[in-house]
Nucleic acid binder design. Sequence first.
DNA 1: GTCTATAGACCGATAGAC
DNA 2: GTCTATCGGTCTATAGAC
Lengths: 228, 228
Amino acid sequence: MSKTKSQNTIKALEIMEGNRPDTATRILDVAERLFVEHGFEATSLRMITQQAEVNLAAVNYHFGSKDALFESVFLRRLAPLLEGCLAELDTLEARQGDLPLEQLVLSFIRPCLALSKDPSRGGAMFVRLLSRTLVENHRLLRETISQQYSVFVQRYTSAFQRALPHLEPEQLAWRMHLAFSVMFNAFAGNDVLKIFTRSQIVTARDPDMIVKYLVPFVIAGLVAPIEG
Amino acid sequence: MSKTKSQNTIKALEIMEGNRPDTATRILDVAERLFVEHGFEATSLRMITQQAEVNLAAVNYHFGSKDALFESVFLRRLAPLLEGCLAELDTLEARQGDLPLEQLVLSFIRPCLALSKDPSRGGAMFVRLLSRTLVENHRLLRETISQQYSVFVQRYTSAFQRALPHLEPEQLAWRMHLAFSVMFNAFAGNDVLKIFTRSQIVTARDPDMIVKYLVPFVIAGLVAPIEG
DNA sequence: GTCTATAGACCGATAGAC
DNA sequence: GTCTATCGGTCTATAGAC
């Protein structure tokens, strides 16, 4: 009897609060935002559980540790994103063989753009999380991720080689490095200049605007004449 | 008497250890490296004082607080670097009036390169610190720095306007944003792709190599044709 | 200026009741 | 699954001897 009453109470709360997600999901959502805002070290389990309105012990019950929670937060977004990029590559290459450079760049940008515009997947949150995690040099990136997703870079390197066949391997590696660096930081909203200025032009972070200015810049950099 | 003996002992130690810098400098040097490696939050005063071989209380004696120490670490490098860039601009503009784009880009890159190659100023350490601080959205950058150094961006914006007179203000703001983003992350050694691959080509971080591939990429992006 | 000792607060993790 | 209570550890900052 008391069990039934308890379940009814919970269901009433869910309806009241608009289908409140389960505890694990609530923790993931809040942790994602706090890890982005404050970083891994500066985000305490107490901050997470208070804002998620769950008990402190729930994190360790559902995820085992703070490190494991971080891994769950991270992989929840990374895996679908990279699979989306590779699916784009598959579709485009099946249709037309080797890709021209712009199609190749767009096959990466389109899934990033779709993610950035989808609030149900946290919007631009994950790109910013990746940015922080990269700079913080988290153990997860050095150990777990690099092995699981190396196929991603291999596929893109191979496609870029065919799109830019005149570039030597070292040239190509550097240009891909610079190109992905600028794409990635554009989506993450990392703006060095905003430190020093209050300009509102670039800070809007509208994803469509990013793409409008980003794509020509990246393409031009990739096809730049080789210095002699 | 005991004072003289104590001073002699210190002097002997200095000679033995090769002119050991004073306590404040030792703290600054170690803190700079640890803030880069572990971030502000994850770096404790205990880590700093132990590696600097000074007493724990020395930080609060010399700098007042952990926040104030961070500010000292940061401004010790930023102020001379930005002054170096503006001095380059002054010299070049005095010699030849409005600068062609490549000279303009180099007026920023040369001081960065000089800093990166100078171990006595911490080498590339400061660019990496700036990168972390930017991503960590530290209060210092939002409040103190942005006011003091806004003249830096104003000078460069004005010079870029004259070098690229056909660009509308919004176009120019975005291209400067993307250009400084890629230059800055190249010097900081931030490489998204290295997460997924073990390629050693780009990870060398040789500053001259960076410039060799960076400058053509940035120039090409800045002068890219405008999309119709 | 340098040091010891410690205050006062917060941390991640867990045992155990329900 | 959820909760309380708590352990053992860390942190920054400071008081006060020398």
